[in-house]
Design a protein around this nucleic acid. Structure first.
Length: 705
RNA sequence: GGGCGCGUAGCUCAGAGGUUAGAGCGUCACACUGACAUUGUGAAGGUCAUAGGUUCAAAUCCUGUCGCGCCCACCA
């Protein structure tokens, strides 16, 4: 028999054990023993190919591995399918930034060569994060690893798009976007840089068409930092609760300089405290105004073109002027008409292009949309009816509230890296989330009718972060229901967000992030996992403290040494019957024997209950208390004297071995490496080769008699 | 602005109507006897944010106040 060293050294065993698991093939459900029949599926939320492991990933991977390992032990045919997301904007940006270092832009390369370059980058760095998950002990079936841009996946995306298209749910429409006139491209929120700037807030008098006699004023005064956009105004808006303007809602304004009639509308997006409480609405050139215009069905009047010049939609006096020129001219014209009440300095944040530092224009542009009315209803029903459950349950509200007022989904992006829209003459690509939405079934072979799809869809649990409930969970739900005719998962677990000790979000750029790989290096993967799981209590956030990882490390060492003790005592002992069916002679049991067996029973029950409800912190606490306090502090100490008495000796040794064996199984989902290593040295007669596929204990081991 | 949540020991958190409010880490004292000093035994440390209310009984339920955080939207 192999000797265990005096202290636990994770570095010595982790890679060895991981290799043992991979070699066993048991990560792959098809290679599990035949008794594993009933499928149990978890799909790893695919990290971005640009990503490297952060605490959120480590936490979620720990959670999923706990669940999948426990189910594997329970005899399920478990699949945990990994993969990565092409993450359109993020990835293209990474490569474009590299180009920038060489003084080049994507336009220098052209579309084809840029995409080639991104693929090269992906091949080189794209799987880094998956390798990092292995360090944590993740028991994913790596043979099924998928990428949201690989060929089969692209077929699925195409199929899904065309399905919606033929239904008539995909349409072309206008949408207001961020535009860089120098790069000649639209920009996402991620690609903007905001700069604090001193501007001017002008208060402009807008004449009422029919001034009410009881009102002294013949005007409504609006405040704006961009007077030139008034040429494209389509309304004036006030807050519906604003008493000052109540009587004006529904009346008309004669837009100065243009002499166009526009309505006064009420909308709660208007902040009554800003300026005069009345704002001009420029539907085509302001994002908020665009939202207001959608609700009130106002027209879009594009007065600024892609080059930053005024279009022919404005009076000829202003044709072709740049935005800056137009502003000067309009101010002076308004002053001549005595329509400027006052002006004051105003500080605000303005968006710039992150690449070329040009001020962003907001313009309407043609985009593709997916109609949401029917799909949203389909996504609502199963959650409302409880067919798909959220844990913790309050996230059901987050999910449903958003869907109740969902707008049509803009699915096109002006990028090069992504799934091309599968229609003739289209250059745009699809929103990254359009492909992620198909993850629960495209990864299993859809649209082909594969055996995997039949076996592993729908998945059992989706574990993810709450900030992508809208972006991702909702979209998977309706995609699954529409295209597979079945909900894509049964339960959605929303894990806590890992914050710094002071309660801030961890951020690489601020240097407040903690690298889980450093923790693994310092304390071992098991300690890191146990410490993380220990902290998962009911709250929606968790402030990370290293103390808990230290606890995990100490606990591992305790397990290690308790095992050494048991192994010393039971050297050469082989249980006659199969592993856990030790046949205790009830009348020979001492009070202490009885107590520890009962306590084990109770612990098994608790762990089952807690895991079923995603209460990982509770489960780890129960295991910790049982193993350390009941088993080590009490039973092991008493066993030392029991072993000295001939009539108890044999039974005591059997119990020691038994409690340890069962504990290792119970602990395995949380701390897989150390438990596997110890298991390999246990003197049990029948072993299954890997603790990973041992039998999860039933809680009816001993009766209370 | 909308949503969600949190203020309990020095720190991170349990406890969710009923005797002396718990854990881990940290601190202090003592103990290296054969599993483990990454240990053992013991100790110190808390008007449970605050003000009212409900109740025989409130850390726990209700209301207000103060403080903190996260997510979403937005900054005209």
């Amino acid at each position: 028999m192999k000797q265990l060293s005096k202290t636990y050294n994770p570095k010595k065993i982790e890679s060895k054990i991981y290799y043992l698991w991979e070699k066993s093939g048991f990560f792959n459900p098809d290679k599990l023993p035949k008794r594993h029949k009933k499928p149990y599926t978890i799909l790893l939320p695919p990290p971005n190919v640009t990503g490297s492991l952060h605490m959120g990933h480590a936490l979620n991977a720990t959670i999923q591995d706990i669940l999948i390992r426990q189910k594997r032990l329970e005899g399920f045919k478990t699949l945990w399918l990994p993969g990565t997301d092409h993450a359109g904007i993020a990835t293209q940006n990474v490569v474009e930034k590299e180009l920038k270092k060489e003084g080049k832009t994507r336009f220098d390369l052209g579309r084809k060569r840029l995409i080639e370059k991104i693929w090269q980058w992906k091949e080189k760095y794209g799987d880094v994060i998956l390798d990092q998950l292995k360090k944590l002990g993740a028991s994913c079936d790596w043979s099924r690893t998928r990428f949201t841009l690989d060929k089969e996946y692209a077929d699925a995306v195409k199929k899904a798009f065309l399905y919606y298209y033929k239904k008539g749910w995909i349409y072309r429409g206008k949408r207001v976007i961020n535009w860089c006139r120098r790069c000649a491209t639209s920009l996402s929120e991620l690609e903007l840089e905001y700069k604090q700037e001193r501007g001017t807030l002008w208060y402009i008098r807008y004449p009422l068409k029919k001034p009410e006699k009881k009102l002294k004023e013949k005007y409504v005064v609006v405040a704006t930092t961009r007077p030139e956009t008034m040429l494209g105004d389509t309304a004036v808006a006030v807050n519906p609760k604003d008493k000052r303007y109540k009587s004006l809602v529904g009346q008309k304004i004669i837009l100065p300089l243009v002499n166009r009639e526009i309505p006064i509308v009420a909308d709660n997006l208007v902040d009554p405290k800003f300026g005069t409480g009345a704002v001009k609405v420029t539907s085509a050139h302001n994002l908020t105004d665009y939202q207001i215009s959608l609700k009130h069905k106002l027209p879009l009047i594009q007065i600024i073109n892609e080059g930053g010049k005024l279009t022919k939609k404005v009076p000829s006096l202003y044709h072709g002027l740049s935005v800056e020129e137009a502003r000067k001219k309009i101010i002076s014209n308004l002053e001549e008409l005595n329509l400027i009440q006052k002006s004051e300095p105003y500080f605000h944040q303005l968006p710039y292009c992150y690449r070329c530092d040009t001020k962003i224009e907001i313009l309407p542009s043609e985009q593709w949309f997916l109609k949401m009315d029917k799909l949203a209803k389909k996504a609502i029903t199963p959650v409302k009816k409880g067919k798909v459950k959220f844990y913790p349950k309050n996230f059901k509200k987050t999910y449903l509230d958003w869907l109740e007022n969902v707008r049509d989904w803009c699915i096109s992006r002006q990028l090069w890296w992504g799934h091309k829209i599968p229609l003739k003459g289209e250059n745009d690509v699809l929103d990254t989330w359009f492909s992620s939405a198909l993850w629960p079934f495209a990864t299993l072979g859809w649209p082909q009718k594969t055996k995997d799809l039949e076996t592993f869809y729908p998945s059992d649990v989706l574990s993810t972060a709450r900030d992508i409930i809208h972006l991702w969970v909702v979209r998977m739900m309706f995609s699954g229901i529409e295209l597979m005719k079945k909900n894509p998962f049964k339960r959605v677990y929303i894990h806590p967000i890992v914050l710094t000790r002071t309660g801030q979000r961890m951020s690489k750029s601020l240097g407040t992030g903690i690298n889980p790989l450093d923790l693994i290096e310092k304390y071992g993967a098991d300690a890191t996992r146990f410490g993380l799981a220990w902290q998962i209590m009911g709250g929606q956030d968790m402030k990370f403290v290293e103390d808990n990882i230290i606890m995990g490390k100490k606990f591992c060492n305790k397990i290690w040494n308790a095992s050494r003790f048991v192994l010393m005592q039971t050297k050469g002992l082989k249980s006659k019957k199969q592993n856990y069916d030790l046949n205790f002679q009830t009348r020979n049991l001492t009070l202490a024997d009885r107590k520890i067996l009962k306590s084990l029973n109770k612990t098994i029950g608790l762990v089952n209950k807690y895991l079923e409800n995603f209460l990982f912190g509770k489960a780890t606490h129960a295991l910790y208390d049982f193993f350390w306090h009941d088993f080590c502090d009490k039973y092991i100490e008493i066993s030392k004297s029991q072993i000295l008495e001939a009539k108890y000796q044999k039974e005591t040794k059997k119990i020691l071995l038994y409690i340890l064996s069962v504990s290792l199984v119970l602990l395995h989902p949380f701390i897989p490496f150390i438990t596997e290593e110890i298991y390999q040295t246990l003197p049990l007669k029948k072993k299954r080769g890997c603790l990973m596929i041992e039998k999860w204990p039933s809680s009816q081991i001993i009766r209370d008699s």
